[in-house]
Design a binder for these strands. Structure first.
Length: 482
RNA sequence: GGCGCGUUCGUCUAGAGGCCUAGGACGCCGGCCUCUCACGUCGGCAACACGGGUUCGAAUCCCGUACGCGCUACCA
């Protein structure tokens, strides 16, 4: 590699749904490689499957990509020198390439109907033969061809795969080879003229000057077909890198039944894009430093194909949660508050002291969506013991003495904060002789109804003197009747 | 069935012939901190799929087996 070509990578999703976590990881890798080399990251929409492609999906994918922080240099929304970036808008280009191939005799029309194809394939399988296309239409006589045409059959175009072996070098897996016999003459374009994946992909990657094709491992067996196409068109294939699949807990390809599988679901659940990108990067890659909380800059700087693993990785939500918690805690408190606010829903967060609440909660959650539920205790108008343990604490003889002392101590107070609350607790301890857990737990339950929670002085401060006194009074009244 | 790829603690991984009585991280268990929980911190449990080679020496190289995943579409 003496001629320094600018590195160009691409992410080429088909807009048939939300951005899947596995595809997101592919996008992350491509983005990282491009940035690592100071190159360009291109976004291309592969919408040649008219049945399944929708504009809504495309928009949603672009939105999620942007949310992840993976900025693209060229794409359908912003154009670029190699556009258009939607395959459905590049049909003329594919037609030209097809003509090139036709001129050199590398393609031929195939009139086989889908059911005929399937039937013959099953027969070959039953006989223990290769399921690849049998070459039925390979050497069709003109007469036969005309006969099919008059039947109204519209041909697909197949690529003629000659005997031999197709090898390529994978940046991650090393040399890989396929016997051409196992490939078979594959379809380049359908009867309706739409190009197939392998054909459009090669034409576009070449036109867009892609230098590194980085994609999932499920594409390795497509690669020899694509290499054959590059060669037939007189082009030099790009470098290929096939990254391991992401699996679910049962070691099967990650799918819906494994729970959340799309990026938008993780956004809604309160994960930070930086955490998700970091986590995804660490699936099948590791920093030489051994560090795991890396951040985008280090991810880009330290990336190295040599450190990409060759085996599939299980997507482990527990570790993602931990990592997200790390990112959440590293956030500036003001920023944390700002990011948590939307999770209170349309009604918004209760305005009073929300910042004090989020400050207290920053180390208590690992997803932003947990903030509202954990914050509820600060905005409640009544206190209900959460369980039998809480009720038992309220029934204890100490609880009444502590509660009464609390009311007595707080009655004359004109101001209120965590320090004053602490002072009150000290006085109660002095007056009743009760201390430690036996002193604090009854107050905690009287104020929050819960046996666990953030530090009590801060909690009491946020609640305010009046509310604290009311909750204690109501608690005493309730247990007084029993 | 064929072809391809893969196989280190439950999970993510380090490891590129001796540095490995296999290291780190998550989770789990326990200690500390502490009114509780969480955070933080300290410690513990836990793995080289199996069988043959090659070598003075193999988690690392070779072969085979098993298992897993992927592809085998006029889907991408």
């Amino acid at each position: 590699m003496t001629t320094e070509k600018k590195v160009r990578t691409r992410f080429a999703p088909s807009p048939t749904g939300h951005l899947h976590i596995g595809n997101a990881r592919t996008a992350v890798m491509n983005w990282i490689v491009a940035r690592h080399h100071g190159g360009e990251f291109i976004l291309r929409v592969e919408d040649t499957d008219r049945e399944r492609s929708t504009r809504e999906s495309e928009e949603s994918i672009l939105r999620d990509l942007a949310w992840l922080g993976l900025k693209w240099d060229e794409g359908p929304d912003r154009g670029g020198p190699h556009g258009p970036y939607r395959q459905s808008e590049r049909l003329d280009l594919y037609r030209d390439r097809m003509s090139d191939l036709a001129r050199s005799g590398r393609v031929y029309p195939c009139y086989c109907a889908p059911d005929e194809l399937e039937a013959r394939r099953q027969e070959r399988l039953a006989r223990g033969e290769s399921p690849a296309y049998d070459g039925h239409c390979r050497e069709l006589a003109d007469a036969k061809r005309r006969a099919y045409e008059s039947e109204g059959r519209v041909p697909a175009m197949r690529f003629r795969v000659e005997p031999g072996e197709t090898r390529f070098h994978d940046l991650i897996k090393g040399p890989i080879g396929f016997a051409n016999e196992t490939i078979g003459d594959f379809v380049l374009s359908r009867g309706d003229g739409m190009p197939m994946y392998n054909f459009a992909c090669v034409a576009d990657d070449h036109d867009m000057e892609i230098t590194h094709v980085i994609r999932g491992n499920d594409h390795v067996s497509n690669t020899p077909r694509q290499v054959l196409l590059y060669l037939a068109l007189g082009w030099t294939p790009p470098a290929f890198a096939h990254i391991p699949m992401i699996l679910g807990g049962d070691r099967e390809r990650l799918s819906k039944r494994h729970g959340a599988t799309s990026v938008d679901q993780y956004r809604a659940a309160g994960y930070l894009p930086e955490a998700l990108v970091n986590f995804l990067s660490l699936l099948s890659w590791s920093s030489e430093s051994g560090d795991e909380i890396l951040g985008m800059e280090r991810l880009v700087r330290e990336f190295d194909f040599g450190r990409v693993s060759e085996s599939p990785a299980v997507f482990n939500t527990e570790k993602l949660d931990w990592m997200n918690g790390q990112y959440l805690r590293a956030l500036d408190p003001g920023r944390f508050c700002e990011l948590a606010l939307p999770f209170f829903g349309a009604a918004g967060a209760p305005a009073a002291d929300i910042r004090k609440v989020t400050d207290l909660l920053q180390s208590a959650v690992d997803r932003l969506s947990q903030v509202p539920e954990k914050a509820a205790v600060f905005f409640a108008e009544t206190v209900v013991p959460e369980n039998a343990e809480a009720e038992a604490i309220l029934r204890s003889p100490e609880a009444r003495r502590i509660g009464e002392a609390f009311l007595g101590q707080t009655a004359p107070l004109v101001s209120w904060n965590s320090e004053l609350f602490l002072a009150v607790m000290k006085e109660i301890q002095k007056g009743t002789g009760i201390k430690g857990k036996n002193l604090w737990m009854p107050i905690r339950v009287m104020l929050t109804g819960q046996v666990h929670g953030p530090e009590l002085p801060k909690t009491a401060e946020i609640l305010g003197r009046e509310k604290c006194r009311r909750f204690v009074r109501e608690s005493l009244e309730r247990s007084g009747d029993g």
